[in-house]
Design a protein around this nucleic acid. Structure first.
Length: 930
RNA sequence: GGGUGCUUAGCUCAGUCCGGGAGAGCGAUGGCCUUACAAGCCAUAGGUCGUAGGUUCGAUCCCUACAGCACCCACCA
């Protein structure tokens, strides 16, 4: 029987992972199959430019665990994958490359530039998909999509045309967030506003027509953080209830430098408490001012070009200045005219483009918008009525809050890389929308000889991402079988940072276009931070590459990776020092399973997780533990046949009953998205029940020739059975090691499937619950631990066997002691167990009790005796403390009368238990020689 | 300004809709190379559960207020 497989050496993930993944992929195990109920997940498509970061590895691990679990439970499971063309991000990367050759995108022209991006995509776009393979993601690669591929683009264009025809997409000239570096509009979400140190300038605006303010001055003071915009002011506003300025309402000021006369208006938006209570109004360059301007029908003056330099709407001496230059120039000009009242330091909220980092300028431009209110209404409803559920539920509030205050969505971007807007213009600027130019002409009955030019803008990336769940399944073809089978998808797994960007927009678009929800459940994961709770970032140099945790990296490699291409190169020495301190030996290769297990272990309902590499290390050891347990099973079954058992021992019955509980717990954990429970339950069971106890309990059976063959067979059978179940239970979390070991066990389990991936997930009812066995083993464990405790306290060497005397005890104690004596002797290193009969003299020894049973380990010398005396005193003190608390309760009339009877009974039992412990100790103390 | 979450052992965190003297991992301490595993085994120590009230026979858990931390949203120039 030596032809059976054995394990050699310690666990080495590198040896097994790559090979297994290739095999799974080649054999098509990731494809949907079977005729069970459909189950589907759409992978949030990572940017094609990206490399896998910790957050994605985390989320993908959870998705993979879910999909593997569902596959094993017989669902027809699809995990749809793909990458996102990531408009701005990708255009940035390729633009950089071109710059390195001394060219600009404009030098190439639109078409050549786009060709260049495609070329880049073909060459470098596969990085992230290779990394996904490395962590074991079982996505269906056969169906991999790209948001700019032909079919998906068709869905995007179709969407645009339908929404336009239904009046939900319109073109308008509006104040939008303008990124002067990329020269494109941005949506509200792409702007990040953060406080920065700035100034507040108080400017004097002279009153027109020789008027005087209530304080007698000939001017009003306005406060601003952006003095250069005064060139575009078209009013000064005061609060209508502000006594100081009541008389000035309707009058005018002479706007300095621009030499324009502008009105003083009243608007409740003005806070009289702030500054002087006068607010300058620049409707062309401030969102608030724009709204006020609309209320008062003020003129909107645009003073900036698309590069944020001053345009021809300002006096000649200012034209062409960059906005920051303009600020200085305006200030000095005002100062010269004695119109600068004061300057103070001020914390200013600065809006920046999330990609470019450039300060965003509100700018009046012509853009495409989605009319959002009608879409939002339905999207709110499906979450309110529970058709879509968020897990954890509290994220629903975040979703609602945003949805109820949503504004029209600016979807056009002045970029080249993306889905070009399917709109054409004639020479008079009329708009024609269609699936292509011909379609646009046809639907407008437009003659072919009228020349049309296509809108040069592209759609923002999230517009296409919003179609991801159905655009990948054959939509707009209503007969698409995939669409019918796998849509709506079952669950969306993502971080709370993109609830607005993506989740909300998916719900709106999917409902409108398909009449279906995109997914039934949204599982929101927390965000991974570093061990100190700080956000991982390149800038801070505390980021971890998940692949480094899988494959390992030496210190020099890690340092190099962290300090190369830093946004702030001055941080390099500090980052290097911190890295050398935290990772003196680099990172060892822990393997994908250990990393994945750690991710699952971390995935509690919390919103942030501190990622400690020590946990990965610990879980790597756990993998090793499983490896060695399997080695033990294989070694011991090598010389014996494993047949269906004729006899199961109490230990066999116990571990099977415990296994049944594990199956129930894990299934429940998966259904509740409690991956942390799943991981903890598996860890606890495999390490502390199967390995620490069950394996040890089988040794006396297997190694003792006098034990009946039937029991040996029972033990071997159970060892194999429970190990095999453990592997299947753990497979969704740790796919590699479980499949590898499961195959090694095949000759013993007679499993027919080629891979654990094709095996079924364990069923709760495949094993019986066995209270009797659980009680018996609990008893055994307690007795063994008690003896070990005595041994530990007395420093008795593990190699020395001790003699144990039992006394008192119930008939059940006697029965169990009889039944388990071999196990007890071996596991507690006991040579002889004797029962002391009533009245028999008790030798001096350490005594502890388990229930009514007294366990005595006789002393060997006087030092032990003294130690035992002091232990007894400590114990008595502890018992008194506990007794005080229990009797306080029991002497409380209220408690006894009003608490549930079983709770009261627990306290009564406890009291009597403590009492008996106490008398045992007192008695023992009395018996001990001086 | 509005909102959400968090505060439990030295560290990182569990504590399951639903109250009955708090657990894990890592770390620490002591002892062991016991034929699966020293990447291991056995044992031990360590917590007024952020603060103050309230509800209750009983509160880490429910309610209120406060403090600290983190995050999200928002138009105070």
């Amino acid at each position: 029987m030596s032809d059976r497989p054995q394990l050699e050496g310690p666990f080495d993930p590198k040896e097994i992972e790559g090979e297994l993944y290739s095999e799974w992929e080649e054999k098509g195990y990731f494809a949907p199959s079977g005729d069970g109920p459909p189950f589907s997940i759409a992978l949030p498509p990572p940017n094609v430019t990206g490399t896998l970061h910790v957050g994605q590895a985390f989320q993908q691990t959870l998705m993979d665990a879910i999909i593997r679990y569902r596959r094993m439970t017989g669902c027809d499971s699809l995990w749809q994958t793909g990458t996102d063309h990531a408009g701005i991000a990708t255009q940035m990367v390729v633009t950089e490359q071109i710059r390195a050759q001394g060219l600009t995108p404009q030098d190439l022209g639109r078409e050549a530039f786009i060709d260049r991006v495609w070329q880049w995509k073909r060459e470098s776009g596969g990085t992230i998909t290779q990394q996904m393979r490395r962590i074991g993601a079982s996505v269906d690669w056969e169906r991999e999509r790209f948001t700019l591929d032909e079919g998906f683009s068709k869905a995007v264009i179709e969407t645009f045309v339908r929404l336009y025809n239904d009046g939900l997409i319109y073109k308008g000239t509006r104040l939008v967030n303008w990124d002067p570096e990329f020269k494109t509009a941005l949506s509200d979400l792409e702007v990040v506003t953060e406080p920065e140190q700035g100034h507040l300038w108080n400017l004097r605006y002279p009153l027109a027509d020789g008027l005087q303010a209530s304080d007698g001055s000939s001017y009003v003071v306005v406060a601003t953080t952006r003095p250069e915009t005064m060139l575009g002011d078209t009013a000064v506003a005061v609060n209508p209830d502000d006594e100081r300025y009541r008389d000035l309402i309707g009058k005018h000021v002479d706007l300095p430098l621009a030499h324009r006369r502008i009105p003083i208006i009243a608007d409740t938006h003005v806070d009289p408490e702030f500054g002087s209570g006068c607010l300058k109004i620049t409707p062309g360059h401030d969102f608030d001012d724009n709204e006020i301007g609309q209320r008062h029908e003020l003129e909107v003056i645009n003073i900036f070009t698309t590069s944020a330099t001053l345009n021809d709407n300002v006096p000649e001496s200012f034209r062409g200045l960059d906005r920051f230059e303009a600020r200085k120039t305006v200030i000095s000009a005002l100062e010269e005219a004695d119109l600068l009242e004061s300057v103070e330091d001020y914390s200013v909220n600065i809006p920046r483009g999330d990609r470019s980092g450039a300060i965003v300028e509100p700018l009046l431009t012509s853009q495409w918008f989605v009319k959002i209110d009608p879409l939002a209404e339905e999207a709110i409803r499906v979450v309110e009525d529970g058709t879509i559920k968020f897990v954890p539920k509290r994220w629903e509030n975040v979703y609602f809050a945003w949805m109820r205050n949503i504004r029209d969505w600016c979807i056009s971007r002045q970029q080249w890389w993306g889905h070009q807007i399917p709109a054409w213009y004639d020479s008079e600027g009329n708009i024609y929308v269609g699936r292509d130019e011909q379609d646009a002409r046809t639907s407008a009955d437009l003659a072919n000889d009228i020349e049309l030019t296509r809108d040069s803008d592209v759609l923002e990336t999230w517009f296409s991402s919003a179609l991801w769940t159905f655009g990948t399944l054959g939509w707009p073809n209503p007969e698409s079988p995939d669409l019918k089978t796998y849509h709506p998808t079952s669950v969306l797994v993502t971080g709370h940072d993109i609830i607005f960007f993506w989740v909300a927009r998916m719900v709106m678009m999917t409902l409108y276009l398909t009449g279906e929800i995109p997914f039934h459940t949204v599982y929101i994961t927390g965000l991974i931070r570093d061990a100190e709770g700080k956000k991982m970032s390149k800038t801070a140099g505390n980021g971890l590459d998940p692949l480094d945790l899988v494959d390992g990296i030496d210190l020099e490699g890690l340092v190099k990776k962290r300090i190369t291409n830093l946004p702030q190169p001055s941080m390099a020495p500090r980052i290097e020092a911190a890295t050398r301190r935290d990772y003196p030996d680099g990172i060892r290769p822990f393997g994908a399973d250990a990393l994945r297990f750690t991710f699952c272990d971390l995935a509690s309902p919390s919103s942030n997780y501190n990622f400690d590499i020590a946990r990965v290390e610990g879980n790597h050891y756990f993998c090793n533990k499983i490896w060695n347990a399997t080695k033990f099973v294989l070694t011991n079954t090598d010389k014996m046949e494993v047949d269906a058992p004729k006899e199961l021992s109490i230990a066999d019955r116990w571990i099977r009953s415990r296994m049944r509980k594990l199956v129930a717990d894990c299934r429940r954990a998966f259904d509740d998205y409690r991956f942390d429970f799943c991981a903890k339950d598996i860890y606890e069971f495999v390490w502390h029940e199967y390995c620490d106890w069950y394996l040890e309990l089988t040794k006396p059976v297997l190694y003792d020739d006098t034990v009946a063959k039937e029991f040996k067979q029972g033990a071997l059978f159970t060892l194999v059975e429970v190990l095999e179940l453990s592997l299947r239970i753990s497979h969704p979390v740790m796919p590699f090691i479980t499949d590898f070991l499961w195959r090694k066990l095949k000759p013993l389990t007679k499993a027919t499937q080629p891979s654990i991936m094709l095996a079924t997930y364990p069923e709760v009812d495949s094993l019986p619950e066995d209270r009797e066995a659980e009680d018996a083993v609990d008893w055994l464990k307690t007795v063994i631990q008690t003896v070990r405790n005595i041994r530990g306290e007395r420093r008795i060497s593990p190699s020395d066997e001790v003699r144990v005397l039992f006394s008192d005890g119930s008939s059940r104690d006697r029965e169990l002691a009889e039944q388990t004596s071999d196990l007890l002797r071996r596991l507690a290193k006991v040579s002889v167990i004797d029962w002391l009969e009533v009245g028999q003299a008790t030798p001096a020894g350490s005594v502890q009790s388990v229930g009514q049973l007294r366990i005595n380990v006789p002393f060997l010398d006087d030092a032990e005796l003294q130690a035992e005396k002091s232990r007894i005193q400590k114990e008595l003190a502890r018992i008194d403390r506990e007794m005080a608390s229990v009797s306080a309760k029991l002497s409380n009339q209220q408690f006894v009368e009003r608490a549930p009877q079983d709770v009261v009974q627990v306290q009564r039992d406890k009291a009597s238990d403590l009492e008996s412990q106490r008398s045992v100790l007192v008695e023992q103390a009395a018996e001990l020689p001086d």
